[in-house]
């Protein structure tokens, strides 16, 4: 069936099978492969994108359910070649090792900081509980998010 949606500010229109998952639409049809498929069971959060302003797991949403939606993926964060403050936080604080979970972690952080610009460490850990890092790098991921929160609120580290 015909769907159209805006992804990273760009309008797309495709004819898709109803059973196509949003994450496969993003990766295989739009060729935006920054959004990852990890567990494929809505637990690990590697497939997290922003849909109409809220972080969601794209492995558990049908592409047809995202008809007319506004989607943001990791590819849409940097502007004019300059990293988004959350991306910079992960860079500066060594918030990744293998990097597989990173796009999902970052997109969840977008939602987290939008609703809570100055989260405590506990609130950060609760906020990213739907994102699993198998390099066990949570310590630095928390620091990366704290860095981003400071940057985005204008108080430099």
């Amino acid at each position: 069936m015909k769907i159209s949606m805006t992804v990273n500010g760009k309008q797309y229109e495709h004819d898709v099978e109803p059973r196509l998952l949003l994450v496969h639409y993003i990766r295989d049809v739009l060729q935006l492969t920054g959004t990852h498929v990890g567990c494929d069971t809505s637990q690990c959060g590697a497939c997290t994108v922003i849909m109409d302003g809220a972080a969601v797991k794209a492995c558990t949403i049908l592409a047809v359910q995202a008809d007319a939606a506004q989607i943001e993926t990791i590819e849409g964060l940097a502007t004019n070649g300059e990293l988004h403050p959350i991306q910079r936080g992960f860079w500066e604080e060594h918030g990744l090792q293998c990097g597989f979970c990173t796009p999902g972690m970052i997109m969840t952080t977008v939602d987290l900081l939008k609703n809570n610009p100055a989260p405590s460490e506990e609130e950060i850990r609760k906020g990213i509980e739907g994102n699993l890092c198998r390099c066990t790098g949570y310590q630095n991921i928390v620091k990366a998010i704290q860095y981003a929160a400071r940057e985005m609120s204008g108080t430099r580290a």
């Binding site: 959060g45 972080a55 509980e129 739907g130």
Partner: peptide, 9 residues
């Protein structure tokens, strides 16, 4: 319930 992303849907 679940996590942030699950609660959003």
């Amino acid at each position: 319930v679940g996590d942030l992303q699950v609660r959003n849907k």
